[in-house]
Nucleic acid binder design. Structure first.
Length: 215
DNA sequence: CTCCCGATAT
DNA sequence: ATATCAGGAG
């Protein structure tokens, strides 16, 4: 199948129709809780993160309070999410910087966010998009995989795919499209065994393979 | 590129 | 048993 601008528009129209109103899977009450939840979400399911943050935020829901927990107690709180030593160290260092340089608030600044320990491009994009409602496209494992399979945007790195998506999607829909692609990746276009049979995008998907092990 | 890492789905 | 999960740092 040859990819054209028209096919990409059809793909987006179908995604919008199916996943209209898609919300973030992570639970949070403010930009700080979102930031912590996203740091914890690396190589971990959102479901597990939500269990962990519910327990954590009940005990400590501000940078000051999390700093007061200390390293060992924070490690115990987040152990189930995996990569817990790195994440605990990064969360404490990030909270320290938030308190010292940003008055205990999460900065609404893409570059500043990326200087925080444990916060890379993907996490900074999520905070800008979901936390502060600015146009941004965070390319996580789902967005990366689904975009490449659809050829909606092709790339060997998340940054390449992000730049491709910026061209393929109108800016006013960047944040919504980010969620459409995530939910499609979670529910249908799964990493291991994509449910190609019955996929609403089958007719516009170059990777469609019926009853097979996927692409 | 490797390492970090427990929980879950297949 | 092993691939994968809202990645980032060295």
């Amino acid at each position: 199948m040859r990819m054209t601008k028209k096919i990409r528009e059809e793909q987006l129209a179908i995604l919008e129709k199916i996943y209209a109103g898609a919300k973030p899977a992570l639970l949070f009450r403010n930009p700080f809780e979102l930031l912590i939840a996203v740091i914890l979400s690396a190589q971990c399911t959102d479901k597990r993160v939500n269990v962990t943050t519910a327990r954590l935020f009940q005990k400590a829901a501000t940078p000051e309070a999390i700093l007061a927990l200390g390293l060992e107690q924070l490690e115990d709180e987040i152990r189930d999410c995996g990569l817990f030593r790195n994440k605990a160290k990064n969360i404490l260092a990030t909270c320290q910087i938030l308190c010292e340089k940003y008055g205990g608030e999460v900065p609404d600044d893409f570059a500043a966010l990326q200087t925080l320990p444990g916060v890379g491009r993907k996490t900074a994009n999520v905070v800008e998009s979901v936390g502060f409602h600015h146009p941004a496209i965070a390319v996580d494992t789902h967005v990366f995989r689904v975009s490449n399979r659809l050829r909606l945007a092709v790339g060997s790195t998340p940054l390449e795919v992000e730049q491709g998506l910026r061209k393929a999607i109108p800016m006013d829909k960047w944040s919504d499209a980010h969620h459409w692609l995530i939910w499609h990746g979670r529910k249908v276009c799964k990493a291991r065994k994509p449910l190609c049979d019955g996929c609403p995008l089958a007719s516009v998907c170059p990777s469609f393979s019926p009853a097979a092990e996927g692409a």
